[in-house]
Structures are given as structure tokens and as C-alpha cells.
């Protein structure tokens, strides 16, 4: 019937497989691109949230340094509970070494570290962590009239 040198089945298979290869290659590249972009955006967003938290920590530090007697000092701020679809948590650590803020997104696993001004008030408290959402930075401990340390927690 046909004058072509190839058979119908062969052309069928060739067309299908080439088309499938091209299309799946395109889809794979597309999804990888989206994943990469997502990771970058998550990193940026965690960085921004971390900077906001760092400025809140330093503001509470300023409250504590302004007077001798501090009965209570706290700042709370509401952040989005998810960054680009991924949940995250924040850890405030310090005391022994330089105080730092760690922000970790769960999926994809992205971690951002913000260094804080070295200060003696930020305690090395393994429990000083908070999930994304409304986060409060608070003065705690050190007797009833003193700001012993600064901790981070969910409200």
C-alpha cells in the first residue's frame, strides 16, 4: 500500500517513543526547574524571616539593657506558617558559643543560619525552638526583676 521503506509498526513505535522521550524530557526539566526555584525561594524567605526575628531579639536585648530592673519584656510577631508550601521551625541557640538563629524547612530540607550580636543573655537552651507561625521573643529567668536570658517560643 505504501511506498515508504519502513513498516507501519516501526514508524508507529518510532513516533511514539520519540514523542514520549521529548515530552518526558521536557517535563523532567520543568519539574527540576520548579524544584530548584522552590528551594531558592524557601531559602530567601527563611532568610527574611530570620532577619526579622534577629531584629526582634536585638530589640528585646535593648529593652533589657535600658534599665536595671526589668519585670517583663517580650515581642511577638506573626509569620506565615508555611514557606512556599513547606513547614519550618526556628531554633535560638547561644550561651556557650556565638548566639545563632537556625531556621529549618522540612520539605525540601533547607537550613538557614543567622548570626546574632554576641550577648550574654541568650541562653544555650536546647528547648528554645518555635514552629513557624506566631513567634514570641521573651526575657526569661534571672530572678523576678532581671532579664536572665532571651528565649523564643510559640504563642
Amino acid at each position: 500500500m505504501t511506498e515508504r521503506g519502513t513498516s507501519t509498526a516501526l514508524s508507529y513505535v518510532l513516533t511514539l517513543s520519540i514523542a514520549t522521550l521529548l515530552v518526558s524530557g521536557l517535563l523532567f526539566a520543568g519539574s527540576t526547574f520548579v524544584e530548584d526555584s522552590r528551594e531558592q525561594v524557601i531559602r530567601q524567605e527563611l532568610q527574611v524571616i530570620g532577619e526579622h526575628l534577629a531584629s526582634n531579639v536585638e530589640q528585646v536585648e535593648r529593652y533589657a539593657n535600658a534599665t536595671d530592673i526589668v519585670r517583663s519584656a517580650s515581642i511577638e510577631q506573626t509569620f506565615p506558617s508555611r514557606v512556599t508550601g513547606s513547614t519550618y521551625d526556628v531554633t535560638l541557640s547561644g550561651g556557650g558559643g556565638d548566639p545563632r538563629l537556625y531556621l529549618n524547612a522540612t520539605k525540601p530540607a533547607v537550613s538557614v543560619r543567622i548570626d546574632l550580636d554576641s550577648s550574654s543573655r541568650i541562653r544555650n537552651n536546647a528547648d528554645a525552638y518555635a514552629d513557624g507561625g506566631t513567634i514570641a521573643i521573651r526575657c526569661e529567668g534571672g530572678g523576678s526583676d532581671d532579664c536572665g536570658g532571651i528565649v523564643i517560643e510559640n504563642v
Binding site: Y63, A66, T67, D68, I69, V70, R71, S72, A73, S74, I75, E76, Q77, D145
Partner: peptide, 9 residues
Amino acid sequence: QVTYETEIE
């Protein structure tokens, strides 16, 4: 959002 209680001399 902010709480600050202190004694000033």
C-alpha cells in the same frame, strides 16, 4: 504585640 514592664530610676 509588645510587652515591656520595668522600673526606672
